[in-house]
Nucleic acid binder design. Structure first.
Length: 191
DNA sequence: AGCGGGATTTTCT
DNA sequence: GAAAATCCCGCTT
């Protein structure tokens, strides 16, 4: 079992975004375990005009330039948090945005945080952060440790994965750097 | 079912 | 001072 082998997180960010599909996130809150499967991701790096790291290192995006396997959380639109898994070694400003997850365990706890039901629970980047109670306190957190762990699982077959243009941004929208699990009901939007 | 706009505050110019 | 890696509600078909 190589649950905590984050070696692959230093490679090509697009490949990593694809590799993270099907992996699990384990969130522990008040002795309760919330388990989800990653079903949608998006790749960002410094060459990407839509990336927070495009214009260099700042206080806000510092974590994204740090070591792989940590969590980059940012606040946006006055009310939402979104989370990324940092990739690349120290000094490389790249990460994979988690856009959607599927609840496996602790769904009733997630409902308490979200006040929503079904796919509406976790089918968007800010929605899943609310369901898993992720905020700026977890910015820079190492995903090898509680209370939020990345659990690496088997590689999915190419026929289970779909690639598309990106959503919800105004720059470099034509890049195909969004990856999701085919036919999964928790994907934010099929294309 | 699909479109349009408002919310709300941090961040960088 | 404007834009933002979004979400939700209400209005129209």
């Amino acid at each position: 079992m190589t649950k905590h082998d984050f070696e692959f997180l230093t490679g090509n960010v697009d490949s990593i975004a694809k590799r993270l599909l099907g992996c699990h996130l384990e969130r522990v809150i008040d002795d309760k375990k919330l388990l989800v499967k990653i079903v949608e991701t998006e790749a960002y790096d410094q060459s990407d005009a839509a990336s927070h790291t495009y214009n260099g290192r700042t206080v806000r995006n510092d974590v994204m330039f740090g070591r792989e396997g940590h969590l980059y959380v940012y606040f946006t639109y006055g009310k939402h948090y979104c989370c990324n898994i940092v990739t690349g070694k120290e000094g490389i400003g790249s990460a994979v945005l988690i856009r959607a997850v599927e609840p496996i365990q602790g769904e009733s706890e997630m409902k308490n945080f979200r006040q929503k039901d079904g796919a509406e629970l976790t089918n968007g980047p800010a929605k899943l952060c609310e369901a898993l109670h992720i905020n700026l306190q977890l910015n820079g957190h190492n995903l090898k440790n509680p209370p939020l762990k990345l659990i690496v699982r088997n590689v999915l077959g190419e026929n289970e994965i779909q690639i598309s243009k990106r959503i919800g941004i105004t720059k470099a929208i034509d890049l195909h750097r969004r990856f999701f699990i085919k036919d999964n009901p928790y994907v934010s939007k099929a294309m």
